[in-house]
Every structure is written in structure tokens, then in C-alpha cells.
């Protein structure tokens, strides 16, 4: 069997020197890039303008999963509709669940909003907790620490390089976090309405208050009845703005904002969501700048 496989594999191209990484979301592609530099060949399965819940295991993604040495995903069932298919259809032993080549960010972070009971009547809730964990810089720091180790374990030859690049990144990141926390201090206590519970970690980190979501329940599209109720609620307890991620459709946010006489703020949500958000640092810079503009 082994010789047969070896013979057949001659048909395949020789492995590249660089580590090939398939990131499920752009934030993890950016993080891998920070750690690996030009030693890694990383692509993201999704863009900032796609809803990571609703991706299909399309042919190009299966082909990329086939060739990956490492798959870096959020986990916590965010990618449940497509990542398991990429794994099972890829014919790639390295990236299967439980193998070093499959990394889940949710595995090293304490998730918020872990439900005590799970019922589909509550909408598309994730049993492990809210998976949109990348908008708290402390979480990025934890994930980076684990990812440096993981990349080093898979590609031992470049491990020292990953470690030194990773440490340098972490140092810059911690400095930036201190700066962001100082800059973001005036946002504390600000009340906002969001589209989906995908900005929860950002608000929790900045001490902002999420007064409601445009979705009546996670994953359900906004309904007129729910938006009307939300509008009434905002008359009693006003919000500063409606905040949505770049990938969320704009109409419901505009509808509510117009009637509640508050602005809509579009956050990049992840790398590539706005022209300014080119990497993880500018993602946070831009997100903070857009929120701080509300105070002017």
C-alpha cells in the first residue's frame, strides 16, 4: 500500500519550501503573515465582505485545503457549515481535526456568551460561546502565542524565525494595545445598536454597551416588527449610533438610524473590511477612529 501511494505521489508536485497556510478568516491570515513573513504562503478562505457563517465549500477552497500544511480557523462552530467539508473532501491528512495542522483560535481564548442551554429556537447560537473573538487585542495576543508554537511545531526548521518574528510582533502589539486602550477610554459607557452579535468582544473590551441587535435572533434577518420594537426601545434609552460590520447588509441599519436620528458606523470587522484596515494594527486603528469620530 505504501509503495503504491509513494508511486502515485510521484505524479504530484514536490512540496514547496514555504509553509502553506489556509486561514478561514482574513484576521488569521494577517496574523500568520505577521509571524511567518515570507516563509509562509497564506491565503484566506473568506474576505471581509463575506459572512463567515454562510460560506460554501466551493471547488477553489477544496483545492486550497488539499494543498495546505496548516488550516487556521476561529472554531466554536463559526465555520461549521463549510470547514468540516473542506477537511473531509481535501484528501489531506495534515489538516484534519485533532492534527497539528488544524488550529482553532477559540481553543486558547475564553469565549463570551457561552449559553447555559442550547435550543435552535434561540436562533443560530453557538454552543461554545460567541465565536467573533478577534476584536479584543488581548485575544489576538493569546492566539498569536499559541500560533507561534504551532507553526514552529509543524515547520521545525523555521521555528526560531517564527519565534523571533512572533515575539517582535507581540511586543509591538502590546504597545499598541496600551495605546488603543488609552485612546479608546472616552468610548467607555457608550451605548450602541449592532447588526449581529459579531462586535461583542470589541464592545466588552472598550467598556461600551450593546443596547440591541438588528437581528431579532442570531442569524435571522432583521424584521420590520423587531426593528419597530427596537426603535421604541431607543426612544427610552437612546443609542449613540448603529454599528455594523462591513459585510452586514446596509438597509436595516440605515432604516433604524434614520428614524432614531443617529448615525450608522461601518466597522471593517476584519482585515480588508475598509480601505484603511490593511493589517491587524490598522484594523484596530481604523475601528477606533471610526468609533471616536462619534464623540466629535
Amino acid at each position: 500500500m505504501r509503495t503504491l501511494l509513494a508511486a502515485l505521489s510521484l505524479v504530484a508536485l514536490p512540496a514547496h519550501a514555504a509553509l502553506t497556510v489556509l486561514a478561514c478568516e482574513p484576521e488569521w491570515a494577517a496574523l500568520v503573515k505577521e509571524i511567518g513573513g515570507d516563509k509562509v504562503n497564506v491565503t484566506s478562505a473568506t474576505t471581509a465582505l463575506q459572512d463567515p457563517h454562510r460560506i460554501e465549500a466551493r471547488p477553489s477552497l477544496i483545492a486550497r485545503a488539499r494543498n495546505a500544511d496548516l488550516m487556521v480557523c476561529t472554531g466554536a462552530q463559526l465555520e461549521i457549515g463549510w470547514a468540516p467539508l473542506l477537511q473531509s473532501q481535501s484528501g489531506n491528512a495534515k489538516i484534519q481535526a485533532g492534527q497539528p495542522g488544524y488550529f482553532e483560535a477559540a481553543g486558547v481564548v475564553s469565549l463570551l456568551e457561552r449559553p447555559t442551554s442550547v435550543d435552535r429556537a434561540q436562533g443560530d447560537v453557538h454552543p461554545a460561546g460567541n465565536p467573533h473573538l478577534h476584536l479584543n487585542p488581548r485575544n489576538i495576543e493569546r492566539v498569536a502565542g499559541a500560533l507561534i508554537e504551532r507553526m514552529g511545531a509543524i515547520d521545525a526548521r523555521e521555528a526560531p524565525n517564527y519565534r523571533s518574528r512572533g515575539e517582535a510582533f507581540l511586543k509591538r502589539w502590546r504597545d499598541a494595545t496600551v495605546r488603543w486602550e488609552k485612546e479608546g477610554a472616552p468610548l467607555k459607557g457608550m451605548g450602541v445598536v449592532t447588526y449581529h452579535k459579531n462586535l461583542t468582544y470589541l464592545f466588552a473590551w472598550l467598556g461600551m454597551r450593546e443596547l440591541g441587535t438588528l437581528e431579532p435572533k442570531p442569524g435571522l434577518p432583521p424584521s420590520t416588527a423587531h426593528l419597530t420594537g427596537l426603535l421604541e426601545q431607543l426612544q427610552r434609552e437612546p443609542a449613540k449610533a448603529v454599528v455594523r460590520a462591513a459585510y452586514n447588509e446596509p438597509r436595516a441599519a440605515e432604516w433604524l438610524a434614520e428614524r432614531a436620528h443617529i448615525p450608522v458606523v461601518v466597522l471593517p470587522f476584519t482585515v480588508g473590511g475598509t480601505d484603511q484596515a490593511k493589517d491587524l494594527f490598522t484594523l484596530y486603528d481604523d475601528s477606533l477612529a471610526r468609533l471616536l469620530a462619534l464623540l466629535k
Binding site: A12, Q87, S88, G91, A93
Partner: peptide, 11 residues
């Protein structure tokens, strides 16, 4: 059943 670990693109 389906194999997960043959690798090299085989299933």
C-alpha cells in the same frame, strides 16, 4: 466509511 489520513489528495 471514508479515510481521513491517506494524504496526498487520496480518499
Amino acid at each position: 466509511f471514508q479515510t481521513l489520513a491517506l494524504g496526498r489528495g487520496f480518499t
